[in-house]
Amino acid sequence: MTSAPGNLGFYLSGSVLLLIGASKLPALIRRPHDMLLRAACLLLFTGGCNMLLAAPESIVQLNRLSGTANLAAPVVYATTTAFSGASLLLIINWRPAPPRQTRRASRLCVSAYGLVVLAVFLLYGAGSTPVEQVALFDVYYANTPYIREMIVTYLVAQGVAMMVACSLCWRWSREVHGSLRAGLRTLAPAYLIIVCYVAMRLVAVAARWSGHNLDFLVDQVSPRLAAPSAALGAVGFLLPLAGPPVATAARSVRQLWQLAPLWRALQDVSTPGAVRATLPWWRTPPAMLLTGRKTALYDAILALTPHCDPAVRESAHRAALRRGDDASSAEVTADAAMILVARERQAADAEQPPDGTPRSPWHARDLVPLSLALASPVVRDIHRQFAPSEKAAHHA
């Protein structure tokens, strides 16, 4: 059985897993045929039970309450086997594949690991384990008939599940990108560490068969692999869930920073009829802040449309082309110059839009390039040339 420095880590980890699993129950009740959700719930509950039951204190208490020296052994081994099968089942249902293939693999996984759980209890019942062993059960009873087979059965089943899960995660990671790829490439070494854990215990058991003693692999070395495998596993499952929202927030923050020059230029533009809501940045999601910022900028540009002068835009466009800008960049630069001059003209004559020449609306629709174009020397030159002198001096 598993050994560890203390019980707190087992109880805390197990309780967290069970609480998360309980939070998924309403969704499972609504979608009882969702195999991915069922596999996730099974993984959480078997993992939580395994951590609670594998705590050294739990092993001692279970043996004492049952009145049987090592009843905790098959219970812990069965939950470990169930957890291994649930891990493999989750990967099978998580990975994109034809539905028929997924169902067939899922049935095979459930049947195989269900039989292993049954075999663990049957073999334990057929054997004899009179001396209680909390930490060295595997090696102490490595030569006991039926118990020997039970130990090998559960270790091989766990190792096979972890090896297959590791292989599936690594192969699938080559086909995807972003946080899902990062999560899979974190899960793969987590499963590989468990394979090493199993291999060490099998080596120690095999050493007992040949008359040697490598018990330190069971009670000193292999337990040290539990913490890193658990940490990597948690991060691996968390990354695909948390990655997309974090990436979306990062993109929103980057766009807010890129829109800052345009916002500073247009935040005081009069927008009759438009409602500007102040969103406190410290408690508003970045995506919502970005939406509000874009809406306010579009309102400001719409309010400036009657003041937009095609002659200003044409001059800025020619100047940008002479400067070496490509056609697309020149268009954006021209729009930025026209809007900046329109801001000054609106401020100079807020009540009466200019008459005469029909006004040309801006051509660009992406605000970020427009905002970045404000730094162009062409925009500054056209602004000084066409803006009303007093306002130009005021805003310089």
Rank of each mutant, 00 (worst) to 15 (best):
W282C: 09
G114F: 03
L122V: 14
T46N: 02
G356P: 08
M338V: 09
S315L: 05
A320E: 02
A190V: 02
D349L: 06
A334E: 00
S179K: 01
V120Q: 01
S389A: 15
L12G: 12
S15A: 12
E57V: 09
P5M: 09
N70R: 03
D215M: 12
A72Y: 05
E351K: 13
P261Y: 08
V131Q: 05
R64H: 15
R64N: 10
R38F: 15
G127N: 09
S328C: 10
T278M: 12
L136M: 13
N7V: 06
R283W: 14
G324M: 04
A348I: 05
A350L: 04
L44V: 08
M1D: 05
P285M: 08
E344F: 11
G47M: 00
W172H: 11
A126F: 15
M150F: 13
F137P: 12
A311Y: 05
S360E: 02
A39K: 00
N7T: 10
A396W: 11
A207D: 04
L374Y: 06
L256V: 05
P369Q: 10
R384I: 10
G292F: 08
N70D: 02
L122Q: 12
T333P: 06
A247L: 00
I92G: 03
T305V: 14
A336T: 04
P98A: 12
N7A: 09
M200Q: 07
I301P: 01
R31F: 11
L25F: 11
A277W: 14
P358R: 10
V75H: 00
T248G: 09
L202R: 06
R365S: 11
L19I: 13
I339A: 02
A207I: 08
Q255D: 12
M1Q: 09
G48Q: 01
G178Q: 02
L232K: 03
V253S: 06
A250W: 05
M200N: 09
A119K: 01
S23F: 15
P388Q: 03
T68F: 11
R254I: 06
R359P: 10
L122K: 06
R380N: 14
L44E: 01
P285S: 07
L367V: 08
I59G: 15
V131K: 06
L217W: 07
A319P: 11
Y140L: 11
L108Q: 01
W209F: 10
L367F: 08
A78V: 10
I20M: 02
A250L: 03
L44Y: 06
V195C: 14
C308D: 01
Y124S: 08
W263K: 03
P98T: 07
N213K: 08
N70E: 00
M51V: 05
W281D: 03
L28A: 12
H363M: 07
A311I: 04
S222F: 14
D381K: 13
L340A: 13
H307A: 14
Q385S: 13
T186Q: 02
A135S: 14
Y146S: 15
L8E: 03
V134S: 11
E175Y: 08
I91C: 04
R343W: 11
R208L: 05
S66R: 03
E390C: 06
R38E: 00
L168T: 12
V156T: 15
P244K: 00
